[in-house]
Amino acid sequence: MIAANKPNKIARYGMSIDLDRCTGCGACMVACAVENNVPPAHEGATARKGITWIRVFKVDNGEEGPARRSVFVPVLCQQCGEDTPCVHVCPQQAVEVDPATGIVGQMPERCLGCRYCMAACPYHARFFNWWDPQWPAGMEKTLNPDVAPRMRGVVEKCNFCHGRWHAAKERAAAAGKSEIEAGAYVPACVESCPTGAIRFGDLKDAASEPAVAAKDAHSFRLLEKLGTEPKIYYHSKRDWVRQVAAAPKPPNGKENARG
């Protein structure tokens, strides 16, 4: 969707998430909401109507009793690099892959709210504003000025904290540089993760943590076979955990009411 670019440095921002470190504390989810002005849940919101750009799922190995083991899997927009499913379905160019960063951007101001992109996303990483955003009286004072609140009726999703990218760009410009230095820009979830399970960097920079993680034998991406080349790498030394990347298993008849 974008025309020519200056020979700016082309980045491919990506993430690595170490599932062996994630405690499921939810700090990333909360930090994300704070950073991106996502309102608290409307009273009618449920886990299926909520807005959680990053959402931590509790996944178990399907065993019963003491054999049951769980892992926490943070899922955010996987920033697909090829055949990005949501981009070419949007009827009005409200979704695009920024060629300079590889970030899949969603423009709430352009969005019609048709939700076709949500149907297209295999990761369910897109969220619809079912309600107008509402903060308790006074709490709007704590909104982040770098991110515009979205209105009801549009889709939104993780954009690697684009406000922070803007800020980093501006800081670089103030220093007279046109490029962001490695580490000068990290999304809020990365910064907030108390265990450092989430790492962020430029996949083109071989020294960056995600790039290193991408080459690790214990790394995997979700639904890799779809061929969408997601840029979020998960990592776990546990074999069964790596199975979460695969397609769902048919139900065993018992449903957990949670998670």
């Binding site: 020519a4 670019n5 200056k6 920024d98 060629p99 970030i103 951007g105 423009m107 406000g163 990218w165």
Partner: peptide, 11 residues
């Protein structure tokens, strides 16, 4: 010849 993807200028 500068980049102009949406999120370059929108937030």
């Amino acid at each position: 010849g500068l980049s102009h993807s949406c999120l370059d200028c929108h937030k």
